[in-house]
Design a protein around this nucleic acid. Structure first.
Lengths: 128, 128, 128, 128
DNA sequence: GTGGTCTAGACCACT
DNA sequence: GTGGTCTAGACCACA
């Protein structure tokens, strides 16, 4: 549960990534309840509006489900529908970053290694 | 020479990517003169200041060299210094996108394919 | 915090130098927040865009880190990569100025003294 | 006699430096006649206006002297008056570059070496 | 003609 | 409140 206050990445995006990563790693289990917006805001020392925004995005992406009056839970089933439009967007972004990497003299095998790393376990990353 | 005006990506960043891609693909050759700021602005139907901003970024990255009163040229030599801090940033960003891809049910081999594509020819993609 | 409005040096470059010098002198500490773009613009009696341009350059050089909605901070760690191409450029420029100095009957020891001065404390100079 | 067409430095400045360096190195001797504006322009493949501008600057700095109808000569005596205002300017510029160098992890001894190099012989420099 | 700097002011995203 | 992007238009320096 670490938010990098000195990162250029918006807080709400950091929260989204945090939750998603913990789900993929199995730290957060489907059905499990997570902290309420206000509780999470207290824990992370940030504005509830920011946490709320993050939760909304996670809900839109089908990662969590909020039940009015009961709380917020990790979604039972991951949506297995493949949204081709979104996939195309991600592909686009990745390829742009690969372009950046090429300009930084990074070769193909190294990038492939990064991808594999992310698919295996998952290690915490510094930086932004 | 296509700029997506409806993309969330700033115009100037799109121009930067465009030029960089064309250089890596060999469409633009070292020493070659590229369109002037005003000419490019005319072609892309945008403000010269925006194009100028893109050119400035490209110059700082060593992709082009610009000379007052003479014009703008593709840099003769690419600086091949590997800036580890920047590499770490790109790695970080790529891994975050890989995380997103996993949520969209994209498997590792497909992403690897995207990377390879970018290293071989390079085809243009829509979206942002 | 002095900007020479009659200098040939662009405002934004003067700001860049100002901040860099204060960082090297320890007046500005890593992690410390600096004046917002608008605030700095008010203080220096100039357009916020100009200050913004300076901040952008400082960010690209890794001196500061700027976060949308939160503010601008002195970077925690300086990137210590030595970019030989940039070093060569600076060397080139310095040697040209040394040439000029020789024509002004300045001897080698005096220039060496200037260099040392800059490495020790650092005192502000007028002119451009 | 080399002008770097791909340098960001204005042509006229390059000419000025060229002449000054050759004088300091003794390649051009006091009293020696140099090529006329038009002749020099032909040799360097550039606009006579550009060469003319360079010669005017050299004359202002007392490096050359132009005699109407007779031609242009290397000045007999170097002005030994030390112009403190100009010296202050050069000092200022050098110290700014030293600041840049420090940010590029260059230490004091290396810069001092550059200065010494320029005072001894004088070698041609690539880059800009 | 080229690029560079600066201002003024609009609109957007994040906290 | 913060910074970011974009436009419009003025003025300057270089070729």
């Amino acid at each position: 549960m670490m938010i990098d206050k000195s990162s250029a990445k918006p807080y709400y995006e950091q929260i989204v990534l945090l939750i998603k990563e913990q789900v993929l790693q199995g730290i957060l289990q489907p059905g499990e309840q997570i902290a309420s917006v206000r509780e999470m805001a207290r824990q992370l020392l940030m504005n509830p509006n920011t946490v709320s925004k993050a939760y909304k995005m996670l809900e839109m992406q089908g990662v969590i489900v909020t039940v009015k009056g009961r709380g917020t839970y990790i979604a039972e089933q991951q949506t297995t529908v493949r949204d081709d439009a979104k996939v195309a967007q991600v592909k686009q972004k990745i390829q742009e970053l690969v372009l950046e990497a090429r300009y930084l003299s990074v070769d193909e095998t190294e990038i492939t290694k990064w991808v594999t790393e992310q698919y295996e376990g998952s290690q915490t990353n510094a930086n932004d």
